[in-house]
Simulated scan of single mutants.
Amino acid sequence: MTTTSTYGSIAVKLMVLLIAAALLFAPFLFQDVRSVEVAARICIFIVLVASYDLLIGYTGIVSFAHTMFFGFGAYGAAILLKQMGPGWGPVVLGGLAGIALSLVIAVAIGLLSLRVKAIFFAMITLAAASVALVLASQLSHLTGGEDGITYSAPDLFKPATKLLVDADGKVMKIAGVRMNGKIAAYYFVFASSAVLFALMLRLVGSPLGTVLKAIRENEARAEAIGYRVVAYRTFVFCISAVVASLAGTIYAVWLKYTGPETALSFDIMIDILLMVVIGGMGTMWGPVIGATLLVIAQYYLRDLMGVAAEAVSSVPVLPELLNPDRWLFWLGILFILLVYFFPKGIAGTAMEKGVRQ
């Protein structure tokens, strides 16, 4: 008999719970600026990758336009914060503008293109993303061009803001962490990301999630039993675009800079794809694991290799192989090994192997 609670799924959920706890207490556990930056990036990319998993993992839609929607949200907030000054009004209006533009483009792409075969749809989304990147680079009077836009975040998130003060009027410290605007900015990112992820988790657990899986497994059969496949695929494409746009707005508020490389680069799309594959498609827990592992590797693998190279400095050849400049090579090796040993991603493979007959 197959148990509903398997060892594999329990292990995956425990891993996700540990990641969530580490992110929740990140400013207190890792008090250097770089670590908090890494934690905030993980939060953003968990949402971004999970929204992409709605497409590729739950509906079988391959899109290369996800960073375009992410960029719309980021540029919407960035442009208004630059023009109107720091405040919540520009953030809300910019976020809504990013959502509106994302919805218009998503509906247009969905209705015109989702009827075609997968490879042609992927090429159409790639072309749309390329156009957005070119426009962001050329409309320098609005987007700052290649230099991007630098602006100020709302006053609540400024380092000089005092969230808690002691009897002397100085910024209070809790566990050695100053209770200022920087900590408020991090928890804004964490809370916003957690809410968006919870909404997506609820979506895939609803009857709609079951329909999406049916469309992924057998589109013709789903249409034969009465489901309007194009309407469902367009709807989920729009939902995914909206979530990606909101993630872009949150990232723009945190980073206080938006440019083509940080919001619209095709490198970001590659990262999203790698995170989905590493974590596991169609699980929703996979994006949490994949985003965490890849972001940590991008920030710390180089440092780890430097330490390893020094440790084996007396051994022939090894120091050269472990040269920090070769970190991308070793990242590629690690990715190949992960795909080989976890063909359905870490979460997908663990949950599949954990089922007891």
Rank of each mutant, 00 (worst) to 15 (best):
T3I: 14
S5W: 15
T6Y: 04
Y7D: 04
S9N: 13
S9C: 06
I10F: 07
I10P: 00
I10R: 13
L14Y: 12
A21G: 03
A21L: 14
A22L: 15
L24Y: 15
L29N: 08
Q31F: 00
Q31N: 02
R34M: 04
S35C: 02
A40N: 14
R41A: 01
I42R: 08
I44H: 07
F45D: 00
I46E: 09
A50V: 08
Y52R: 07
D53A: 12
L54F: 13
L54A: 12
L55R: 01
L55M: 02
G57P: 06
Y58W: 11
Y58K: 05
V62A: 10
S63F: 05
A65Q: 12
F70P: 02
G71K: 08
L81W: 13
P86N: 07
G87I: 13
W88D: 15
V92E: 09
V92N: 09
L93Q: 14
A97E: 04
L103H: 07
L103Q: 13
V104G: 10
A106N: 01
V107K: 05
V107M: 12
A108D: 05
I109C: 07
I109T: 12
L114A: 03
L114M: 00
L114H: 03
R115G: 15
A118V: 06
F121R: 03
I124D: 13
T125G: 12
L126P: 06
A128N: 07
A129P: 05
V131T: 09
A136P: 11
T143M: 03
G144L: 07
I149V: 01
T150R: 11
A153H: 12
F157V: 04
P159K: 02
V165T: 10
A167I: 01
G169S: 15
K173S: 09
K182E: 14
K182D: 09
A184Q: 09
A185Y: 12
Y186N: 01
A191H: 05
L199D: 07
R202A: 12
L203D: 09
P207T: 06
T210I: 15
V211Y: 06
I215E: 03
E217D: 11
R228V: 03
Y232H: 09
R233W: 01
F235L: 11
F237D: 04
F237Y: 14
S240M: 04
A241N: 00
A241P: 05
S245T: 05
A247F: 00
A247D: 04
A247N: 08
I250L: 13
Y251K: 08
Y251V: 09
V253G: 01
V253S: 01
L255R: 11
L264G: 08
L264H: 14
L264Q: 10
L264T: 10
D271M: 14
I272T: 05
M275E: 13
M275R: 06
G280C: 05
M284I: 15
V288D: 07
I289P: 13
L293N: 07
I296P: 05
A297T: 12
Y299K: 05
A308H: 00
S313K: 11
S313Q: 11
P319L: 09
P319N: 08
P319M: 08
W327H: 05
L328D: 01
L334K: 08
I336M: 08
L338N: 00
V339R: 14
P343K: 09
K344W: 06
G345F: 03
G348Y: 04
E352A: 14
V355E: 15
